[in-house]
Write a protein that binds this DNA or RNA. Structure first.
Lengths: 356, 356
DNA sequence: TCGATTTTTGTAATCGATTACATCTTGTGA
DNA sequence: TCACAAGATGTAATCGATTACAAAAATCGA
């Protein structure tokens, strides 16, 4: 009996329901998709049969016929990064509300994985693509675009008048970070980078440099430490920092993780934060409020970003895009907490003594 | 021209390629799926036409015909939780290696969302389901199982002889946590729970209680603070802790976040960790190595868990399941770091004085 | 070179829904 | 009651691939 039921549920087709209700497949289909087109009596008859049989439409067949998959591909550089996880939440809420599913394309920081997802998109498994990464190569986006696939870029600045950008104001915020530090009296700066070569990193560094220039400083007034968007980048930066003679006092990290790694490492050598060195992060991850001291940082409106990005993609898919939606740039919020403060020692020599 | 190309790529079907190559659709299909079945000359001819036309098979049509979607549904309680993100990495690596896609079902801690994903699974959009949550209700799993859908449970203990479990040894590790603390001399304990009602929480608390009993203690020797798997649960627990007269000295938190929240809050009141209170976490998230002091915790083999879970599901889908694979229980590793230490004050009165 | 065997290719049914069009009902007004 | 419009339902083509089976071509031994 259990086995009977199994078969029954598994192999129920629209034709079976039609037979059960004594109507045609067309009528069953109409009842399910556009109930106003059938008489109440027929409607009830069919619904009864649907309920009895436990029929659920085969969505693959629906997709083939209607040419809509109701799926969206989201390409992200790395899922374990809480930043992307949070964006995904915003995307997911909006998309599932409208009945869309999400297929994830996790690059796991390996560029060579892109091709796989480009193929997946081109084989019409999805109605649209959300690009959370700046990595997808020009020919990848080009072929997707040529296939007429709606795409929204949610990393900084994909220069393509066919692809709308929904991004945060990375560059502006990075510029403000320097302004903020210089207004606290800092005159020597440090920049802890993100993954070299990524668009996001490029934007943030560009903003940092703009800020340096705007505050009246030049290339000789800052040092730059490179590495990916992870804790250990900050640790490595800290080790370089500790070896310096004239240490910078104002550090801007391109992500919170590296800021936290940096602070942890320098504190282990009795460098005080913020008395000896101020650190400002980027992203506003939840953990940044649980470090000691709590981290000054820029909060990205991640959930909103995901939400808006999904919304723009939906409009694109439905062809109801208005040009006003084309480029959205969301502002960041400075969370002024405890890792930044005014410069206490203007004289670097005395600073150095105090830290050892 | 650009528009021409767009149409060309977008609307290319197997029939078009067949015409271009001067063969039948059957031959094209064979070239693409089973090249050994056609002559070399024909093969080259067809491949040439494929390349020329930019043809990519419509995977929806393939799915309909072959009745395999090459997609797997992963139901997770909350994506922003780094634990699930890391499991997902393991799942993803294994699945994409075999050409499968992942559709994510993010419950975002809301149980009512399950129904949506159960429907999605039942409408044959996926070949199998990976359950990272203990929430899916009995009738949800039952209907999926009755539909003959392969399922693997990766939360603790779904009692169903049709559903293999691939889990970590939550209960054993929790028991060991108490043993570890009691061997350090602790005699009063605290338990910071995870989301009430979740299977994972139940397992961990059960293990904790077993440990209490095994060490010769009873219900009167520990306090229990409730809350979900988040930082603020630990903060709330700390506030209750701070108000206590006879404070416990050995705290076990069911997740690292709440352990971190707890430590942060008590340190703000000059309670020293581990001199005044030892704290041990659960999960082994990356952050736990960047707190001050670094957190003693159990590391879950998350990536491996995801990997093994995906592997078992693949075997299930292909019908090559061996009974030895049926139930996998992966061990956890105790990371002994700086938030745990021997009891310094056996006399609670003196302990209380020292902390204020 | 011929017939038997094997290999290659083609024809057409199939997967399970949707939907244009045709046909049949029902309802309305004279 | 009848003609006609509006509404409900049915028939069959369709989406784009795969694949069983049939047919054709290539290969081989005598």
């Amino acid at each position: 009996m259990s086995r009977e039921r199994w078969r029954a549920v598994k192999e129920m087709r629209i034709a079976d329901v039609a037979r059960l209700a004594g109507v045609s497949t067309a009528t069953v289909s109409r009842v399910l998709s556009d109930p106003d087109k059938v008489r109440q009596k027929t409607h009830d008859l069919v619904m009864e049969a649907v309920k009895r049989s436990g029929y659920i439409p085969n969505s693959t067949a629906q997709k083939l016929r209607t040419r809509r998959t109701m799926n969206v591909l989201v390409i992200a550089p790395r899922l374990t990064n809480p930043v992307f996880a949070e964006i995904l939440r915003g995307v997911d809420d909006e998309l599932t509300r409208l009945g869309y599913g999400i297929i994830i394309g996790n690059l796991d920081n390996r560029r060579e994985r892109e091709a796989r997802y480009v193929d997946l998109a081109l084989s019409r498994q999805v109605d649209g693509v959300l690009l959370l990464t700046g990595y997808v190569p020009e020919n990848g986006t080009r072929s997707m675009r040529e296939a007429g696939l709606p795409i929204v870029a949610m990393c900084a600045a994909i220069e393509d008048d066919k692809i709308p950008n929904v991004v945060v104001q990375d560059r502006e915020a990075s510029r403000r970070a320097v302004t903020f530090l210089s207004e606290l009296g800092h005159r020597r700066f440090g920049y802890i980078s993100g993954t070299p070569g990524s668009i996001i990193e490029a934007e943030r560094f560009a903003g940092f440099q703009e800020g340096i220039a705007a505050a009246g400083f030049g290339r000789e007034d800052f040092v730059r430490w490179e590495g990916p968007f992870v804790f250990s980048t900050g640790v490595a930066a800290a080790e370089a920092f500790l070896k310096m003679k004239d240490r910078p006092t104002g550090i801007f990290a391109a992500c919170d993780e590296s800021a936290i790694g940096f602070i942890k490492r320098v504190r282990a050598e009795r460098v005080r934060v913020p008395q000896d060195v101020s650190v400002i992060g980027f992203d506003g991850i939840e953990f940044a409020d649980y470090t000691e001291p709590t981290l000054t940082t820029f909060r990205q409106p991640l959930y909103e970003l995901g939400h808006v990005g999904a919304d723009v993609l939906m409009k694109l898919i439905r062809g109801e895009m208005k040009s006003a939606d084309w480029n959205v740039r969301l502002p960041l919020t400075l969370l002024e907490r405890d890792t930044t403060g005014p410069v206490l020692h203007k004289d670097y020599k005395s600073l150095r003594r105090s830290t050892l």
